[in-house]
């Protein structure tokens, strides 16, 4: 495993990601470019954490960058045998056209559906603002 200290993206200790920040786009130019498979930067991890809606501190991003690089280096092994002639399989035992009769089945009551919600108004889930000021 690499012992290099990865660069940090932010001097502050507060969460480095939020829904409104898009630090650096993930490398989206295929396998070309400077970041080939196996090379992961802190900027990428910060962006991925943002996409996954998980706030991470700068320290967590730094640690995860090292861990992900090691994992990706290992799992990239799949490319050795995944030649173009091999079809992809998404399910072990594929079933097609799984339908049921189009009739109303057993459903949850409104009360049941709201029973686990952190906040509700008796008939609807309650959430904070959908749009921020910038939008």
């Amino acid at each position: 495993m690499s012992t290099e200290t990865p660069p940090t993206t932010s001097e502050s200790a507060r969460p480095a990601t939020s829904a409104n920040s898009r630090p650096v786009a993930a490398n989206s130019n295929g396998n070309g470019g400077s970041n080939g498979p196996g090379e992961i930067t802190t900027e990428q991890v910060a962006h991925l954490a943002n996409l996954a809606r998980i706030n991470l501190t700068t320290a967590e991003i730094a640690k995860m960058t090292v861990e992900l690089a090691a994992i990706v280096e290992n799992v990239a092994k799949v490319t050795e045998v995944a030649t173009p002639d091999v079809p992809a399989t998404s399910h072990p035992i594929p079933l097609t056209n799984v339908y049921r009769p189009d009739v109303v089945g057993e459903t949850l009551t409104q009360e049941q559906a709201l029973s686990g919600a952190p906040e509700h108004d008796g008939s609807r889930f309650r959430v904070s603002a959908i749009l921020g000021e910038e939008q």
């Binding site: 396998n31 996409l51 799949v78 490319t79 995944a82 992809a88």
Partner: peptide, 17 residues
């Protein structure tokens, strides 16, 4: 993510085959 999907997830699905 875009750009890595074929190399990683796509390849993994082929290994499953």
């Amino acid at each position: 993510s875009a750009g890595y999907y074929d190399a990683y997830y796509g390849s993994a699905q082929k290994v499953r085959t």
